[in-house]
Computed example of a mutant assay.
Amino acid sequence: MTVESTPLNTMKNIARYATLTSAAGIFVLISGCATGPQANPRDPLEPMNRQIFGFNEVVDNAVVKPVAKAYTYVTPSLVRQGVTNFFSNLGDVWSTANNALQFKGRAAAESWMRFSINTVFGIGGVFDLATDMGLERHKEDFGQTLGVWGVPSGPYLVLPLLGPSTVRDTAALPVDMQGNALNAVPHSGDRDRLTGLNLINIRANLLRAGAVLDEAALDKYSFTRDFYLQVRRSEVYDGNPPDLPVPDAAK
């Protein structure tokens, strides 16, 4: 099987299709698709979101999960950890930029130091020496930056193939894609193969959590939504979010 193998090509094509369809949620939102007055205020488009969630589940079960399982089966855990470290190290470049945009000088400096140390001494980031040296990872994206700037998250959205999001995070997605350090890879074929490998590796790292979710969640959609919104809110406020306002009906 060559480097242009079926699993990598499949993941590459999924990534391309996801890029083309990532704005679908906002398009439907703008077109006036809404539910009744009893709708969850955080998820007014729940019927549409559930349909897209179901579609994503079908694609994941039919294509993405089997590829991730095969990857896990044939790739030693030490190698998978190195792949994870490599892509996390590239992510530190974009985290540096977003920490700077959020005026977090120390976090920006530490993110750049992490990238420099791991790239030079960790063989391109395969080994995470910076963490062993006590340099904490400050992972940030442009969606979080918009949140720090005061942009509200807006309604919850489920994007085709890409999964959980919000209006704010979806609007930030093109900027995050442009900020991906893989764009610096000059050859498009190499760039696509690395993107496919990253997608496979990310899904493989989520296999165990996904199995637990399948067994424990009574409503997988609601659990995924609530977990995503809670995590994103915590990330915007660096783990210390303010209390949510109490709805008038609950007072």
Rank of each mutant, 00 (worst) to 15 (best):
R80C: 09
A23G: 15
P37A: 09
T75P: 01
P7H: 03
V83Q: 01
A62P: 12
R50Q: 10
A24V: 09
L8T: 04
V79F: 05
V3R: 09
P155G: 03
N205R: 14
D43V: 11
L159R: 12
T195N: 10
F55R: 04
A109N: 09
R114H: 03
V64Q: 08
V28M: 02
N85D: 05
F223D: 13
K12D: 11
S31N: 09
P7T: 00
M177G: 15
Q102G: 07
N40W: 04
R191C: 10
F223H: 04
S234I: 05
R80W: 05
S222A: 15
S22R: 11
A250E: 13
Q51I: 13
T131A: 05
W94K: 14
L213G: 05
R42I: 01
N183P: 06
P186R: 00
V63T: 02
D190T: 14
H187F: 15
L20N: 14
T195A: 07
T166P: 00
D176A: 00
A23Y: 14
E4S: 12
F86I: 06
Y17Q: 12
Q178K: 07
M48S: 12
G163N: 02
I123M: 13
I117A: 03
T75R: 06
V167N: 01
V151T: 01
G122P: 03
L45W: 04
L135W: 13
S95Q: 02
F103L: 11
Y221I: 11
Y221E: 06
R208M: 07
F115Y: 08
I14N: 07
Q230T: 11
A15V: 08
A107Y: 02
T96K: 02
V236C: 01
G210Y: 12
M48H: 10
W149N: 09
P47N: 01
L29Q: 13
R225I: 14
V93N: 04
L182K: 08
L199T: 04
L218S: 14
A70N: 13
L146C: 11
L20K: 13
G122A: 07
L159A: 13
E235P: 06
L101T: 04
K104S: 11
P41N: 00
R232K: 09
V79A: 00
